[in-house]
Design a protein around this nucleic acid. Sequence first.
DNA 1: CTTGACCTTCCAGTCAGTGGAAGGCCTATG
DNA 2: CATAGGCCTTCCACTGACTGGAAGGTCAAG
Lengths: 131, 131
Amino acid sequence: MNIGQAAAQAGLPAKTIRYYEDIGLVKPARDANGYRTFVANDIHKLTFLAHARALGFSIDDCRDLLALWENTERASADVHRIAQDHLQQIEAKIADLGRMRDTLKTLVRDCAGDDRPDCPILNTLGDQPSP
Amino acid sequence: MNIGQAAAQAGLPAKTIRYYEDIGLVKPARDANGYRTFVANDIHKLTFLAHARALGFSIDDCRDLLALWENTERASADVHRIAQDHLQQIEAKIADLGRMRDTLKTLVRDCAGDDRPDCPILNTLGDQPSP
DNA sequence: CTTGACCTTCCAGTCAGTGGAAGGCCTATG
DNA sequence: CATAGGCCTTCCACTGACTGGAAGGTCAAG
């Protein structure tokens, strides 16, 4: 299977697959003409990567998860730890964004949004801490 | 005021301030010795930028907001639109992350996390869509 | 035989900084 | 006066995870 079909199967852009090869996540064989050839196991790995990336795992996490996935001697604790850490990071980011959202919501609500220059958004952003 | 003090006042690393000058967000004067000199207005702009960045506005948005802030003829509608758009992007990102969190939470909960290899996290990531 | 859809490599750019090297300037102390 | 150390300067490279595009090779259909 060529890269185009592999991309369609895995749900990844061909460019991304080439990049994943560059950084050593997959190692497709090559045809006589130099084209990459993807076998079922390659597709399976790419699908795994697509899923893991969709859950927000970093490439480094993906590398580790992939290694664990291929290692039948693994301890699920190792997988659990990676996922748990990642979950915590996501929750921290959600909390950060939630705070931004709350502030922004208030500012947007209080701004008239008309043709006059008065603007609580700019006033707030421009506020100097009292010296 | 030199860059070190400006950084302390604005709550930004000196490196970031140099970068902001590079991309034209601030234009501090220079001393005879080549050092940047920050006057009150520069500090005020830097503080504005620090606040806007802390709310997640992109540098491009910051550039526009700064221009509006300095333009007393502005229409608050322009500010409102930028903030509103940004708010929507934040909310979209929160929603995305929330979905990731929910999936991850389930996976983490269902994984024993012991020394055995069985792992619903890996099973899910490795699932091929049924053909 | 040509067209067009594939495929290849390589280079550059994204975003918003950050790290570090090499070197100049300024102040205080011995 | 020398020197130490704490500022400051520029410039280059790197980050993550791709993405866009150029230049060119390959293959199947008509």
